[in-house]
């Protein structure tokens, strides 16, 4: 009897599993199509406007390109060998790396802090969000003008504030040791884009998780590390990748603060990779070398992002995950 029952139940289970699998596949396909539809505008734009340019720049990187005659004499790997031999490439890379290591964690922490503050605001939250987002809308040139005053070593507001608590502030813009921190400060000013992503992620964390944790006696710090951070880990991961790429490409803040008239700190300390690339292309007309620089930067960022993805996948919680 039991055997008969088992035998008749097996095909039913198998049919049910099959039906579920078909449903899941359909669902997955629908979800995938929606995903493709969402990225289609970017993908089409990339194919039309960027891919050709990228391929052309790759070609240029193996040539000595002459703008006047629009000719490109092949030079093999000479530009790439030149990169390895140019001390300023190494210096610019070191400066950029130092900045990235300093800036990215601080941007994440500061943006998350602001987002958590805004998430708690009930009355007038729209006004506060707008105010906090305004720096992102301000042109970099205007921001740089303000920071030139804020960071003034004698009378700037930052040093005045430090003086009020008994700290003698540095010559931010002139002392080579403070060049990168001053750029980081200016970068932090525009952190509101990252903040908005965190704010959206924080709004998606279920409230009942906090209520349960609170009943179990978890304090705010424990709740932050055990609930908030894991639940927004996807947003953290995304922001780390985006900010790392942006940090390696930093240009306008550096150029405006230090390369505008070369009167501040010795520009060796402010020679960033993107600045040197710009100098090579548009001041020295060394387009092949500049293209090689761009491709090396692209490859570095690609490897770095792949590592981040590999490492990040161990820690990131995706709400939509199905095993």
């Amino acid at each position: 009897m039991t055997q008969q029952l088992t035998a008749s139940a097996e095909p039913e289970d198998r049919q049910r599993d099959l039906a579920r699998a078909v449903k899941r596949r359909k669902y997955n396909r629908r979800e995938a199509l929606a995903g493709y539809a969402f990225i289609a505008p970017w993908a089409i734009g990339f194919l039309i406007f960027s891919l050709g340019t990228m391929i052309y720049s790759l070609v240029i990187s193996f040539t000595n390109y002459n703008l006047a005659t629009n000719t490109a004499a092949p030079v093999g790997f000479a530009n790439y060998r030149g990169l390895a031999q140019d001390p300023l490439v190494r210096q610019s890379l070191e400066n950029t790396l130092f900045y990235a290591v300093l800036a990215v964690p601080l941007e994440i922490i500061f943006a998350l802090f602001l987002a958590m503050l805004l998430a708690r605001v009930r009355r007038g939250s729209g006004v506060f969000r707008t105010l906090y987002y305004l720096p992102k809308m301000t042109p970099t040139v205007a921001t740089a003008s303000i920071f030139l005053l804020l960071l003034n070593g004698n009378t700037g507001a930052i040093n005045r504030a430090l003086r009020a608590i008994g700290i003698s502030g540095p010559q931010w813009l002139i002392d080579p040791n403070w060049v990168k921190p001053s750029i980081v400060l200016m970068t932090l000013w525009g952190v509101s884009g990252t903040m908005v992503i965190f704010l959206a992620a924080l709004k998606n964390v279920p409230r009942d998780l906090y209520e349960v944790a609170s009943i179990d006696g978890a304090g705010p710090v424990r709740q932050f590390f055990s609930i908030t951070v894991p639940m927004i880990s996807g947003a953290i991961f995304f922001n780390v990748i985006v900010l790392t790429i942006a940090a390696f490409q930093v240009f306008d803040q550096v150029y405006l603060l230090f390369w505008r008239d070369n009167s501040n700190a010795s520009p060796d300390s402010a020679l960033f990779y993107a600045v040197y690339l710009f100098e090579q292309a548009f001041r020295e007309f060394n387009f092949g070398f500049a293209a090689a620089m761009a491709w090396i930067l692209f490859l570095m960022l690609l490897v770095l992002t792949l590592i981040q993805v590999k490492v990040g996948n161990r820690f990131v919680y995706y709400e939509g995950d199905r095993s």
Partner: peptide, 23 residues
């Protein structure tokens, strides 16, 4: 497709050598 585009770009690049002459 990528290799084809690369080759086409290379060809275009080297064939543009006749240019407009010097200043």
């Amino acid at each position: 497709t990528s290799v084809g585009a690369l080759l086409a770009a290379t060809a275009a690049c080297s064939s543009s050598g006749s240019g407009s002459g010097n200043s």
